[in-house]
Design a protein around this nucleic acid. Structure first.
Length: 491
RNA sequence: CGGGAAGUGGCGCAGGUGGUAGCGCAUCUGGUUUGGGACCAGAGGGUCGCAGGUUCGAGUCCUGUCUUCCCGACCA
């Protein structure tokens, strides 16, 4: 195994693939398109889950669980929804295996064919709305504010770890409301929850906006999104929140009786983020030495590495290390003390850099004499010395500083790669040679969006919320436009 | 699903015109080491993706098939 990663400049996707594997986040599995998330990678996902889950509950939601399998007939009930997912559904057709009469292991028992095939959920709107029909009779049953953490399957042609796999983990919120206004407010609230989380915890700056017709979720009236910029200038959708109108209520006949006694269809939203956030995290912060984790998501925020000669010296250092570890833990810092004798300090330094541990503390014989430790920052790769007595207060402050610095650095990168453009030539040139977010006028038609995609591979990532109105001419057609939209190549 | 490339110990690779598999890293043992991926000595580990075929003989040639990666279409 090579000791160094492919550099980002040399081959960005190779860098990403190697980093995911070498940092021990995930690996490909024996199953086509499906990944194994390894303990270190899953620990990060657990932190994402825990923080988001808390935010969902603080905004009034509760978790529930709906089946993995969805009867095929449910899918045909909402036309645009089927159209959106039909091409990537896994289908269960049989329920039993038998010994192969020809002696070649087991085969599917042809007599065990299902009456109605089951779809492995690509998303759960249909099964959930079929259930909500039973839950909702009166306005007193509303709103329903439910989330589920689950796996879903979308049969993908080309897969990449975390970014696009056939099976992935996510959460999907599904809410039901008495009024349109309330449902829209819910979709907007959840977009706020996502953007706050992604910016404050993941340290990834996001644009908030709405999708165009072409990019909208299958079955939604409005799709809100947050878009992040990766270090190769491509956009990655970090989360979506949909206002579904009454589409699913009508498809599944979910009505409620109002105070006035009339029957009305329920208004709906759904919203989700997936393990794709792991990809966003990696591609926003990491460098050619490996992963860089924001302190708020790092499985260990601090790793302590002893430098010693002989058991006696290790024992002396361990006394200091364990004291510091206790003090740090008391101050809410997660610490790992790596005193394994099977690896040298240099090896550990490289390994923890590869795995993105925000702060490394090294303690050696010289530190014992002077009462100091060596503190190394992962994000800047800088080292300095600190008195042991300062560690318990200085390290939490340093972690906060790193958290902010990562966000600021990513924000600066995004700003440096965001341009306002008014000519088609300039637009084409940017997309080809220096991709990033391009703010340009668009005539509002699907045809133009498709044409631009065909010519440059760039799509409209979003129409920013609270967008400034400004008269202009469409970048491609010259037709009048009232606002700029954000174009980028996307993951 | 279209176009390319590749499948050989755990990982990365080498194996002109066919002759019975090798290197680096990793692993194991012993010793010396330990402030940025240590060194020396020794050891273990592969029915060459799979299935057919040609041949006295196939990692090598032929056919089929599966998988992975890259580039497109689709997508969170």
């Amino acid at each position: 195994m090579g000791k160094h990663l492919t550099s980002r400049e040399q081959d960005y996707s190779k860098w990403y693939n190697e980093l995911v594997v070498k940092a021990d986040l995930a690996q490909t599995s024996a199953v086509r398109g499906a990944m194994v998330i390894k303990p270190y990678g899953f620990a990060i996902w657990e932190r994402i889950q825990a923080d988001l889950d808390k935010r969902f509950k603080e905004t009034g939601h509760m978790n529930a669980y709906f089946p993995l399998f969805i009867p095929k007939s449910y899918f045909s009930k909402e036309a645009s929804h089927v159209e959106g997912f039909a091409k990537e559904c896994a289908v269960v057709t049989h329920y039993r295996l038998m010994d192969d009469p020809n002696g070649n292991g087991v085969i599917v028992d042809p007599s065990a064919k299902l009456e109605e095939e089951l779809i492995v959920r690509p998303t759960s709107e249909t099964i959930i709305w079929n259930t909500y029909k039973d839950w909702i009779q009166s306005y007193r049953d509303l709103p329903i504010l439910v989330n589920q953490w689950a796996n879903v399957v979308r049969w993908e042609m080309r897969t990449r770890l975390f970014l696009r796999t056939s099976e992935f983990l996510w959460q999907e919120g599904h809410t039901a409301h008495a009024t349109k206004q309330e449902a829209i407010a819910e979709a907007e609230t959840m977009l706020d929850v996502y953007s706050t989380f992604v910016e404050e915890v993941m340290a990834i700056p996001v644009l908030r906006g709405v999708k165009t017709d072409g990019e909208r979720f299958a079955g939604a009236l409005e799709t809100y999104c947050i878009e992040a910029m990766m270090q190769d200038g491509k956009a990655l959708q970090a989360g979506t929140s949909h206002f579904l109108g009454q589409n699913f209520a009508k498809a599944f006949d979910v009505k409620f009786q109002t105070k006035e006694g009339t029957q009305e269809y329920v208004w709906a939203t759904s919203w989700g983020v997936s393990t794709r956030l792991m990809g966003a995290l990696i591609m926003t912060h990491s460098d050619d030495n490996g992963l860089i984790l924001p302190p708020k998501l790092a499985p260990y925020q601090v790793v302590i590495v002893p430098i010693y000669r002989g058991q006696e010296q290790l024992d002396e250092i361990s006394v200091v290390a364990e004291k510091l570890m206790r003090e740090l833990r008391d101050n809410g810092v997660t610490v790992k003390y790596d005193h394994r004798d099977t690896h040298k300090p240099g090896w550990k330094f490289n390994q923890y850099e590869l795995q993105g541990v925000p702060v490394r503390i090294a303690i050696g014989p010289k530190d014992l004499e002077k009462g100091t430790v060596e503190v190394a920052r992962r994000d800047t790769l800088t080292k300095s010395f600190m008195d042991q007595s300062d560690v318990s207060t200085a390290i939490p402050a340093l972690l906060d500083e790193i958290q902010v610095a990562l966000f600021e650095k990513a924000l600066k990168f995004r700003d440096d790669h965001s341009q306002t453009v008014d000519t088609w030539e300039e637009f084409k040139d940017l997309m080809k040679n220096n991709p990033g977010f391009v703010y340009a006028h668009w005539d509002g038609t699907q045809e133009t969006e498709d044409k631009i995609k065909e010519l440059t591979k760039a799509t409209i990532r979003c129409i920013p919320l609270n967008n400034k109105l400004e008269d202009g001419k469409c970048i491609l057609t010259g037709q009048p436009s009232t606002q700029r939209v954000v174009f980028a190549k996307a993951y």
